[in-house]
């Protein structure tokens, strides 16, 4: 293909893309002027914020309690096994390390697969 023909094709493609972008922009601008969904009044927003903040505080307290209970259970188990069953304590430690390696490997492989799919 000659150089001029190539240039002409690239120019034509550029013009086509610009035209498509302009059409899309014009249509989306028109779309924005149509009231498909109404904006609620000020009261609704105030209520939304109050309810949501209350819910998040409650959720935080629940999560913190659960965390503290779990931490207490895990710590007591570890201390008990360390004192009463040292062999079982070592097995638990090895299992924890093996699980961490396995889980990290799985996550990395999944991320790579997702990246390959996206590109």
């Amino acid at each position: 293909m000659e150089k001029n023909q190539k240039k002409e094709l690239i120019r034509k493609h550029g013009e086509d893309v610009t035209g498509t972008v302009e059409t899309i922009k014009k249509e989306l601008e028109r779309f924005d002027t149509i009231d498909l969904v109404k904006t609620p009044d000020d009261n609704w927003f105030e209520q939304f914020v109050a309810i949501e903040m209350k819910r998040q505080k409650k959720q935080f307290r629940r999560d913190l309690t659960l965390f503290l209970i779990l931490a207490a259970v895990i710590l007591s188990t570890i201390i008990f096994t360390l004192m009463a069953r040292p062999f079982f304590f070592l097995v638990l430690q090895a299992a924890a390390v093996a699980f961490t390696f396995f889980y990290t490997g799985m996550r990395l492989r999944k991320r790579e697969e997702l990246h390959e799919k996206q590109s």
């Binding site: 779309f31 924005d32 904006t39 105030e46 914020v49 903040m53």
Partner: peptide, 29 residues
């Protein structure tokens, strides 16, 4: 600082723009 009315004013001011953006992306009101 946790001011409720500041939050609701921010949301009230930005809600139409946010909703219109989401309408265009989701195509579902």
């Amino acid at each position: 600082q946790g001011d409720h009315s500041a939050f609701s004013m921010l949301f009230r001011g930005n809600y139409p723009l946010l909703l219109k953006y989401l309408l265009k992306v989701t195509m579902n009101p």
